[in-house]
Amino acid sequence: MDLVERIRSGNKRTLSKLITEVEYDTETGREALRELYKYTGNAHVVGITGSPGVGKSTLVARIVKELRKREISVGVVAVDPSSPFTGGAILGDRIRMQELACDPEVFIRSVSSSAGTVGRTTKNIIRVLDAAGKDVIVIETIGAGQVDLDVLNVADTKVIVLMPESGDEIQMIKAGLLEIGDVYVINKADLENAARTKSQLSLAIKERDGWIPEIVMTIATSGEGVEKLVDAIFAHKKHLEDSSNLRKGRLEAVKSEVVEILVEKLKMRFYEKFSNARYSDIFEQVLDKELDPFTAAELIEKEEGL
């Protein structure tokens, strides 16, 4: 059996090994992605983010359980931060999902955010899981920073998790997450201020491309509200499928991905050129302030006939 067949038939060992190849962007990984590409695009990708402490992991576990109840197969990608110094990481999001570990229709993979390319890595891991036949792929993000947005951007449905707040203004406004969420969750809804947070939130969010983001109240620890949350996710999925925007949006994504790959290639090509001494004079001049970097770039552009 070749790789594609093994992936398509759900061989976990192959799947797991391939994810590692894809994660490290190896030749083997790229080769496999080329072959698997035509089998992708069937899974619905759900990104889940929220600040640390809002109960994300517990909620993800509940969502997966609910999906399994509906007999939907699930892939999970859990992203955890890594140390910028050692590259080491504790990947502990699984703790909350371990009771799902043995379900043959669930595949959970922990990823560290070590590389600055975690957005792309995640996208490719999703493709592998997608080709392996998972119906829904849930990505759990770290909950902070640019890395988070990069990861979230690969999701079809973006779920933002909040918890009741006592302050007058919802913190998420600062993080800019109010512009991108498709579904908002107020978790720990049994806490004080839940209703108030909800009404503040509903004032703050706006219709986008014909979709008014839904707000769902949940208590992840007991599972309350999770059914509604999953309904909301599927409602958004249906909206995407019905709307002409889906193809338009995906076309944009494809365009930016191809451009990104091109840029990456060009970059590599330039670095190769620079490694032989051809332009070293120019760089020396820039360093010695005899030339500015903009002029230097123009010079090289001309030289290369770009």
């Binding site: 976990k12 060992r13 797991s16 090994k17 994810i19 590692t20 890594s82 140390s83 050692t86 590259g87 080491g88 990481a89 504790i90 990947l91 502990g92 699984r94 703790i95 371990q98 009771e99 570990a101 043995c102 595949f107 959970i108 993979r109 922990s110 560290s112 070590s114």
Partner: peptide, 27 residues
Amino acid sequence: RDAGMEVIYTGIRQSPEQIVETALQED
């Protein structure tokens, strides 16, 4: 972690099946 490794930490009360499945999925 401090030695630069990625640690998949599953916590307590793991059954043999859970441990093996985790090892499998996490490569």
